[in-house]
Design a protein around this nucleic acid. Structure first.
Length: 849
RNA sequence: GGGCGUAUGGCUCAGUUGGUUAGAGCGCUGCCUUCACACGGCAGAGGUCACAGGUUCGAAUCCUGUUACGCCCACCA
């Protein structure tokens, strides 16, 4: 092919130009005809489109893209779809704020509904569920366009013909189908049980979505009257507002202080309810007074006690986070009922104040509350402490209540190759710490509904234990608008009719099926066979317990295999002050702004420098370094190609050239090995290091010879070597600097570099001695140093260079003499044997001008 | 309480089976308009490799312990 090297090569605009070409030419299109062994399939994390992409996304998606490009160049057909996570609570919140609306399922659907022109945060308009869902769909479509355009600007080699959305039809069908299969096998079940509950969003949440936050609290000490009238049993609690929900006291069975009380009863202060004193190993003698108040429910330990000691349920908290307005039936005395009146219908905070005030007034409170800070459970997206309420929910068995399943899932984790390997511990400790099944139902609106109806009995009660299910081929269904088989719509909500399950699935219940959704499970068995189990799951370490684990659960239960072979875990981006990059700061630094300022290749260079699994500092400086590297590649390529084309049949023969190629062979081996173990950062670092010394030393050494100063044979060798080296280096950089490498490749090669073969050692002539370059480079540096120190230009003539070195090194240096003389503008080189041990030394005598 | 990771010049990091004077980039200083690149190039200064022991002819690298920071899990009356 004829060369077409621009006079003034530039990085300006290459992103748009090449992204358009790649799209037009289908450079990254997936080849559906490829067999499984030829395919490399990637379970791309679907970003949450209701949020904004930030630097962390750019970071980790670049890692995956580098791996994808490497695999493609290795000859694999890369299956690299993109998903959008658009269902669930985050989208609801975005829609509420964006349009100034809120969903109220009681509002009838209005086909003519238009969102308010000006959203009013304080007075959100109540709209029907259907209108709300429509707004969610409308906004996510817009958001997804923005995301896609950024990903294209970042150069992700995704096949954009293969996108999916977690609220899309494919995802809905897969989610419902998998749920039905889980149900049929007994892996999914519904149960009325104590549930961790967010009072703001008024939905249940799962164990995996909890986090601890340090909050101020206080120990309150007060006494329970003993039945024998012999004084009181003192307890300490941080939750006095739950005193009315107390159903027992508990102490450790070996605690001698309380052994006489086991089996007796005591009476709660204020509410005058008689409760038993019981023994349980979970009670800790050294906590508080050693005896605890069990309430339904203050925390998960209460749930355990309640269940194992078979206590009655005495809930006083409603789902909105307020105490019941009516006095509970278990409070029977007039004084007790009067006490309850003072906290009825209050928030937890106010109820606590009301109880403490009464305890103080009646003299029951012993001492003053002692302020502490303690960890309190929060929903990770919430800002009020979680409560525990009893409700009917759907669960999927995940080993939390089944040791065999837990062991099997732990073993699946060991099936994966983790990159980096230590991330496996996160998975293992999570599996070991599971304390209940996976709660998948949410009392929300924008999500995938459970494909379930229930019969309504003649007396109007709902038969939750006899769900009516659709056939698989009817999926997806929306039970709130579709009717169950064998019923008329008129029977909805009627005795003898049916009702829909009102809940939606949590978004993890869908994203846990990303491999099935992306690979066309059941919908496209041919594609599925070519892509599943997938090769790589790339993701952040913060969602090992959610996304990675839940995906493993679904695949294990349905397919009996791990859903991938490799898990590539990315680190986080840290502020320069080593804290996790905050959202506010992350939003100030927009990804698009970075790409525009530093160039995509510059940003990708910074991202790819972050080693797998390692948290990395946000460092615009590194992006500049990357941009400079891209520019250097541009200029060095232009220079080398303009030295002249090697004549046909030319081959490397000069010692300096063969020496360079020996180093190039090592480089190819190292970069390839690094990529094979998912250490893209190492591959980049090695290539960069080679490239700079190639520019600084080799190019300088062979410049004159390439021009033809030393004869045709020398020039042919130099040019052939430069062409080969350039070709290899450009390809080694291609997974990282995807734009500039494509640009320079296009000057002199056919087709996209991203479809070119990854370099192999077989294409590089051997027989060279690495020592030649290794001794010529420091000699040249010594000459440059002398000129620099004597403040002369690098073209200043050198009268004499005396090299003192060991015999074999001098021999190698002689092989580079011609090139060294030309590069250093030397008049003569003298060689002196180095006697005994020691290091090489150089004596440089500059000539007159 | 259990576990994982990190600790190398002012900053960000390499250092893969232990091997000659510990590397790079940024920043700093000096020089060079040099026919690829001045948003460039060349060169210089700068490190008791967290600390204490140990193994070894030899340790940033292996072992033991300690400290600091970060994270995960569990517990949280």
């Amino acid at each position: 092919m004829t060369r077409s090297v621009p006079d003034k090569p530039s990085l300006e605009g290459i992103e748009e130009a090449w992204a358009a070409r790649w799209e037009a030419e289908g450079t990254y299109a997936f080849d559906r005809g490829a067999e499984r062994a030829e395919v490399y399939s990637i379970d791309t994390p679907p970003p949450t489109v209701s949020g904004s992409l930030h630097v962390g996304h750019v970071f980790s998606y670049t890692h995956t893209d580098a791996v994808a490009r490497y695999q493609r160049m290795r000859g694999k057909t890369v299956f690299y779809p993109m998903g959008w996570d658009d269902n669930g609570l985050p989208t609801e919140r975005r829609v509420e704020n964006h349009f100034g609306v809120r969903c109220d399922p009681n509002v009838p659907y209005d086909p003519a509904f238009e969102p308010p022109a000006k959203p009013d945060d304080k007075r959100k308009v109540a709209i029907s569920r259907r209108s709300f869902v429509e707004l969610c769909q409308q906004l996510t479509v817009e958001d997804e366009k923005v995301f896609e355009s950024l990903w294209r600007r970042l150069g992700l080699s995704v096949d954009w013909a293969m996108t999916y959305a977690t609220i899309g039809e494919t995802a809905r069908r897969a989610s419902q189908r998998m749920f039905l299969r889980n149900l049929a096998r007994g892996e999914a079940y519904s149960a009325e049980a104590p549930t961790i509950w967010d009072v703001t969003f008024q939905t249940a949440v799962a164990q995996a979505e909890l986090e601890d936050r340090e909050r101020p609290g206080a120990y309150h000490r007060f006494g329970f009257a003993r039945a024998d009238g012999q004084g009181a049993v003192e307890i300490e609690t941080t939750r006095p507002e739950l005193l009315a929900a107390c159903c027992a006291l508990v102490a450790h069975p070996d605690d001698e202080r309380y052994q006489p009380l086991f089996g007796t009863t005591v009476t709660t202060p204020l509410f005058e309810v008689e409760v038993p004193v019981l023994a349980h190993e979970l009670a800790q003698p050294d906590k508080g007074s050693g005896i605890a108040m069990i309430c339904t429910f203050g925390d998960t330990t209460d749930v355990t006690w309640w269940r194992e000691l078979q206590l009655p349920t005495r809930s006083i908290l409603e789902r909105n986070g307020r105490t019941k307005a009516e006095c509970p039936e278990w409070i029977t005395t007039d004084a007790g009922r009067a006490s309850y009146e003072k906290l009825a219908g209050k928030t937890v905070f106010s109820a606590q104040a009301a109880v403490v005030e009464q305890l103080r007034e009646t003299g029951a409170l012993i001492g003053e509350p002692r302020a502490i800070t303690h960890p309190v459970k929060f929903y990770e997206k919430g800002d009020r402490p979680l409560e525990i309420v009893t409700s009917r929910q759907w669960y999927i068995r995940n080993g939390g209540r089944d040791a065999d399943l837990r062991a099997a899932l732990a073993a699946r984790g060991a099936d994966l190759d983790w990159h980096p390997p230590f991330m496996r511990h996160r998975y293992e400790s999570w599996v070991q710490g599971l304390n209940g099944d996976w709660l998948i139902s949410r009392q929300r609106y924008f999500g995938i509904p459970f494909p379930v109806w229930y019969p309504v009995e003649a007396d109007g009660t709902v038969a939750n234990d006899r769900p009516i299910l659709p056939a698989e081929d009817a999926l997806p269904v929306d039970p709130s608008s579709d009717r169950p088989p064998g019923f008329d719509e008129a029977q909805r909500g009627q005795p003898g009719g049916f009702v829909a399950d009102p809940d939606v699935m949590d978004t993890w219940a869908t994203s846990s099926l990303s491999p099935q959704i992306a690979c066309g499970w059941e919908d496209d068995p041919d594609l599925f066979a070519r892509t599943f189990p997938m090769d790589l799951r790339p993701q952040g370490h913060d969602i090992i317990r959610t996304w990675l684990f839940s995906t493993m659960v679904r695949s294990h239960l349905e397919h009996g295999v791990a859903p991938w072979h490799n898990a590539g875990i990315s680190g986080w981006i840290l502020d320069p002050d080593r804290k996790k990059m905050s959202k506010s700061k992350g939003n100030v630094v927009t990804p698009l702004g970075l790409l525009e300022e530093h160039g995509t290749d510059g940003v990708r260079y910074w991202a790819a420098s972050g080693r797998p699994g390692t948290d990395t500092a946000f460092d615009p400086n590194q992006m500049n370094v990357g941009r400079r590297l891209a520019k250097k590649l541009l200029n060095a390529s232009r220079f080398a190609l303009n030295l002249g084309e090697a004549p046909p049949g030319a081959f490397p023969s000069a010692a300096v050239d063969l020496s360079l190629l020996a180093a190039l062979v090592r480089l190819v081996e190292e970069a390839t090995n690094a990529f094979e173990s998912y250490d893209y950062a190492r591959a980049l670092e090695r290539t960069e290091s080679f490239f700079w010394s190639f520019c600084d030393d080799h190019l300088e050494l062979v410049k004159q010879r390439s021009y033809g100063d030393g004869g045709d044979e020398g020039a042919a060798s130099a040019r052939a070597t430069l062409e080969l080296t350039l070709s290899v280096v450009q390809r080694l950089f291609a997974p990282f600097l995807c734009f500039v490498t494509e640009e320079v490749w296009s000057w002199w090669q056919e087709g996209s570099i991203h479809r070119a073969a990854w370099p192999s050692v077989a294409e590089i002539p051997g027989g060279g001695d690495p020592l030649v370059t290794a001794v010529a480079a420091p000699a040249l540096a010594a000459v440059r140093r002398a000129k620099s120190e004597q403040k002369r230009s690098l073209l200043w003539p050198v009268e004499r260079l005396v090299v003192t070195d060991k015999t074999e090194r001098l021999a190698a240096l002689r092989l580079a003499e011609g090139d060294l003389v030309a590069a250093g503008t030397l008049a003569a080189i003298e060689y002196t044997e180095l006697a005994g041990e020691g290091v090489a030394s150089y004596e440089v005598t500059l000539g007159p001008a």
